[in-house]
Computed example of a mutant assay.
Amino acid sequence: VGANGRLGSMVCRYLLRNNPNTKVLAAVHYVGDSSSRGYGRLSYEVGAEDGVGTIGAAWSEDRNASFMYTDEMKDYNLQNLRVIDVELLDPVQCMTLTEDVDSVIWCATDFNGNKPRAVSGLNIAFLFRAVAAPTKGRVEIEGLQNILGGLKNGKQNKRWNMEREGGQSVSPKSNNPISFVLVSTAEDAFDDFTTPLGDFKALKRDGERILREDFPSVSHCILQMARYDENFVDEDLDIQFDENAATDDGVEKRRRRINRRDAARIAVEALTDENLLGKKVEVYTALRGR
């Protein structure tokens, strides 16, 4: 969920290229029938635009443009990818999206860093939603609840169908892989920011609470990512976990950084990591700055 974001698109890429037998459903924000902005970054990241394109010369009779698959793209496993437009604040759409889903990696957010996207980047899609329906809800809270509710109902329906057909029901706590990976933000990664619908840090912590307390039957883990840094932090570094972040030195915690590609890697690997089941951990790979 949030597959067209900078992190979400990398998660899709990692899933496709390292798990060739996995079907990936990429949920992107709805931006209009005639626009491709809803999945433009995702398309580029997963390699859908790596094919060979041809276009006829302006003075020729053949002015058609074409774009073709090449053998170099065979390891991209794009046949396993399905992209769906979804409004996370619409519970019906979320219910439909999660109807036959085993696991969710949540990368969606209303924020760019610690500032609302509609403000920080003048994102037309988010700005339109904020103006048209200012009280409709927040992705971090209502959007998360909608997806969790749909996922929970979908899993319950699967168990009931198995029982009716004489199969053996599977306990939610023994699910493999983990049902829900929530990518959140570390407490000291950013300063707080106040919005009309709540403070940045409070919204993040409330989303984590909703997952743990309101949906206890959904197996999960919470990854509180350090600040992302692709300029001065290399990728493919060893992942560091901190389960006792609340007792650590705040100065050192503010120096923690992680490359988004490493964040995407651990978000995917967390699905099958039993050591992370039910846990909330801060995740980082390096220390930078002061």
Rank of each mutant, 00 (worst) to 15 (best):
E274Y: 03
L148E: 01
V131I: 15
D192E: 06
P216K: 02
W160G: 00
R290S: 10
N161G: 07
E165Q: 13
G289W: 13
D75P: 02
G149Q: 09
S34Y: 11
D242M: 05
V92C: 07
G149S: 14
D85H: 14
N21P: 01
A267H: 01
L88T: 00
V28N: 03
R265V: 03
V52W: 05
Q156F: 08
S9D: 09
G5I: 00
V83L: 08
S36H: 08
R288S: 11
D33T: 03
F200S: 01
A186Y: 02
R288G: 04
N112T: 12
D71R: 09
T54M: 12
E230D: 15
S171G: 00
T22D: 03
D75M: 10
A202I: 08
E243D: 15
A186K: 04
N153H: 13
L89Y: 06
W59H: 13
K253A: 14
T22H: 08
L197F: 09
R227I: 04
V131Q: 12
I105F: 04
R17M: 14
N21R: 13
A245G: 14
L15I: 06
N231K: 14
T98W: 02
A246N: 12
D229K: 10
G250S: 13
L276H: 00
N21M: 10
V181L: 01
G154H: 10
D229E: 10
S66T: 15
S36L: 10
F126P: 00
N18E: 12
V86L: 10
H220Y: 08
I258K: 03
I105P: 02
V170D: 06
G5A: 06
Y228S: 12
L277Y: 00
D71W: 07
D214M: 01
G198N: 02
L16D: 05
R255Y: 03
G121H: 05
F128T: 15
V119A: 09
T285A: 10
V281H: 00
D192R: 01
I210E: 00
R82E: 15
D262N: 13
K23Y: 06
V281L: 04
D62V: 05
L7H: 04
T22Y: 09
A270T: 00
S66W: 08
G5E: 06
A286E: 14
D206F: 04
R290I: 12
L287Y: 13
E140G: 04
T194Q: 14
G113F: 07
L287G: 00
A58Q: 04
A186W: 06
